[in-house]
Amino acid sequence: MYRARRRTSFHGGLPELKLDTRPLLTDPVVLHEHLGRIRDGIERDPAAAIASCKELVESLLKMILDKSTVEYTKNDNIPKLYTQVAALPALKAESVPASAKGSEASHKVLGTLAQTVNSLAELRNQLGLGHGRTTPSPALARHPRLALNATVTVAEFLLDTWHERVDKGLLTPTP
């Protein structure tokens, strides 16, 4: 009836990204597909799971830009897309007034958020499926778990901020 089972993660279950509770994401199917690939691949195919983490963030950035009628090209990389989104809802560190309580810490965290987005792309290039690998990926299950946690942090912050800006009337999304 009971048997021992090895836990592969110290923190229990995988973090959740509740996409269906976001009214501005009218069709989050692509994001759900990425999440499915990530969850399926953490143990079985860590390199693919890492790549899907980067792809999820990139897809989300493009969805926000599409809804905000901001143009981008198919060749725009994830740092450029993030810069465009960050400028849109005033996510840049410079948007936090120096007089605001905790502004210095906020500047650091927002700067780290931008670095995290860039690092997801780098991790995909080094351990994921990027750029036609010629050798097997050295990725272990801990690497896509790290990437997933970073992805959820970035995505939740972007979605929360985007929704707040729309609710306050600072942004008007297209239908």
Rank of each mutant, 00 (worst) to 15 (best):
K74F: 08
Q126N: 12
G169W: 07
R22P: 02
R142C: 05
D45I: 03
L170I: 03
S119T: 06
T161H: 14
V57H: 00
G130K: 15
Y82S: 01
E55P: 00
A93F: 10
L65N: 06
I38L: 04
T172K: 10
H163V: 08
R6A: 11
R5P: 02
S68F: 03
L25C: 02
K62I: 10
A90Y: 11
A105I: 14
L61D: 00
R124K: 15
P144M: 05
R124H: 09
E55A: 15
Q84H: 07
D20T: 09
I64E: 01
S9N: 15
A105K: 14
K67S: 07
T153I: 11
N149D: 12
G41V: 02
G41S: 09
R5K: 11
G111K: 06
R3G: 09
A141P: 05
A49Y: 00
I50K: 04
P175F: 04
L60K: 01
D20N: 12
E43Y: 05
S106K: 09
M1D: 13
V96K: 13
V29A: 10
A51K: 01
L123N: 04
Y2M: 11
A121L: 04
T153W: 13
L158S: 07
L17A: 02
E55S: 12
A86Q: 06
A105W: 11
K18W: 10
S52I: 03
P46W: 02
A155W: 00
P138H: 09
K108N: 08
Y72F: 15
K62S: 07
A141V: 07
V29F: 08
L56Q: 00
P89S: 10
L65K: 05
L61Y: 01
A47G: 10
D20Y: 05
Y72G: 09
C53K: 00
K101P: 08
I78Y: 03
L60M: 06
K92D: 13
